[in-house]
Design a protein around this nucleic acid. Sequence first.
RNA 1: GCGGGAGUAGUUCAGCUGGUUAGAACGCUGCCCUGUCACGGCAGAGGCCGCGGGUUCGAAUCCCGUCUCUCGCGCCA
Length: 593
Amino acid sequence: MGQKIMYNYRSHLCSSLSIKNLGAKVTLSGWADTIRDHGNLLFIDLRDNYGITQCVIDGTHSLFEEISKLSNESVLTIIGEVVKRSEETINKNLQTGEIEIQIEDYKILSKSEILPLPVNSDIEYGEEIRLKYRFLDLRRNKLHKNIILRSKIISDIRKKMIDRNFVEFQTPILTSSSPEGARDYLVPSRIHQGKFYALPQAPQQFKQLLMIAGFDKYFQIAPCFRDEDSRADRSPGEFYQLDFEMSFVTQEDVFDAIEPVLFEIFNENKKNNEIKVSRYPFKRIPYKESMEVYGSDKPDLRNPLIIDDYTKVFKGSNFKIFSDQIEKGSVVKGIIVKNTGDQPRSFYDKLNNWAREEGAAGLGYISFIKNSFKGPIAKNLNKDQLLLLKLEENDSIFFTCDKLKEAQLFSGKVREKICNDLNLLNKNSFEFCWIVDFPMYEIDEKTNKIQFSHNPFSMPQGEMEALEKKDPLDIKAYQYDIVCNGIELSSGAIRNHKPEIMYKAFEIAGYSKEDLEEKFSGMLNALKFGAPPHGGSAPGIDRIVMLLADEPNIREVIAFPMNQQAMDLMMDAPATINKERLEELGIKLIDKN
RNA sequence: GCGGGAGUAGUUCAGCUGGUUAGAACGCUGCCCUGUCACGGCAGAGGCCGCGGGUUCGAAUCCCGUCUCUCGCGCCA
């Protein structure tokens, strides 16, 4: 104690000692994870980033009194000898469980006050306290591991991209607001009072400009900023994408380039070997089919249930509720569920109640058991109609009747609900698919106007000819999403690299030539001086880590996330700014009260 | 902006068909304990029951309002 000279903090890590080191005099530094005081014998589990080592001291030692007053999470250097534990006291749960350190000397590097949040426990705590004391939360095993996994995934991605001749770039954080898309985060300009920078929602235009600049293959672990409300899989404020772009490529070239990267990242970082990752090429599902079969544009392919169309069965049938609606243009969607024909009545009633809570009229069903059709709808169909259902023994089928889009979306919910209730999900797999052929345009239901359904810079399939001759709502784009286990990892596209097609595409969505030139002059200019065909995508890093860490919430894989209200409880952001700073920026606050 | 759930000790939670002194576990303080690893035992301190109002003889409990957290919807080209 009381050393005046600088000494080494550690000779070993808290994970590194074993019976091979018996007799060695070692120095370890770390946190006092747990202290077990037996009166005349005391154990300290010393923890660092790498592991835990048990240190022991007995009552005859001159430092015993002092050391027994230590508090949890104090930071210590412990010097002592590596000794073998007796056979009965070996701890198999610990990497270093065959040895312990006989404490000879120690030094307190930093004391800890009473903790607001226990570090050495795995139980769940409220998010508010976890976020306020994030540094303590991050010391805890689960979060600590998640953040290290995140680092590994990012470094793996970087290596794989560089190995494939992608070039890493940085693009501006202070840039200009883009008129399409999400709400921007804005930064006031001091030099140009009244004007604002925007933080990039994605480096979309910059990566395209880099392609036009001839760099051929771009990637970036890119921060993206969107001022939108949060969800369990959407952190407010900022998130990271594996943003990449390639020149002289077709849609299939883009898929070929990224599929092995995603496969390898998932296969090499999955939690255990039981877990199967989709082999590439991943399934390609046209948007229209995805809506028909899964009732979603981000289907979870681990769910074995499938939606089919049964409009023909009910058309003109005696089941008037459906047949009348069909006359008015509705459709009937159904989901066949195996091994449910013998479920008790309550099973169907519960689903029916759930459907009503969801705003549906109910959830009609027919089950087929011992060669007869049961359920309230069955008696309204004749034999031929019932046979069209193609039910097998012990099957049930659940119906939704509504306008096409509503019926698809609700069937999608039913598909998910039944899968969850019956536990049909294969949890040990990562199922990838591409959703392709997204429509270029859609109709805004409020204004009845045609608008871009996705990225306005995407190339329409059929290019100029399609824009000129086809009904805009029938035009597909070279626009695709990659989906894994029902989570949209990213969208991407083959971009429109021809200014004349760009003018036409925007014209259809109601933008004049002047609008376009005002808002995207940089981009348009670039396209006029020799732009290669190019395309790319941008899988979300946080969501990839979330899937691999098997976490239901994205904040569990971000070191310092904001809460749902987009506040940083630890750093106290956002915060008020003093008058002088505001004046300098030419900003006057409006009192909304 | 809208809907669901929650807010009680430093922490996690119980109590909530109203009833006089609000409990448990972990943590904390003190004492005992030489083989624990979530050590154990005894004792103790610790509460504006989120905040404001109302009903009532009496409110953690019932009612109204409000704030906060969280999940979902809207939003997220």
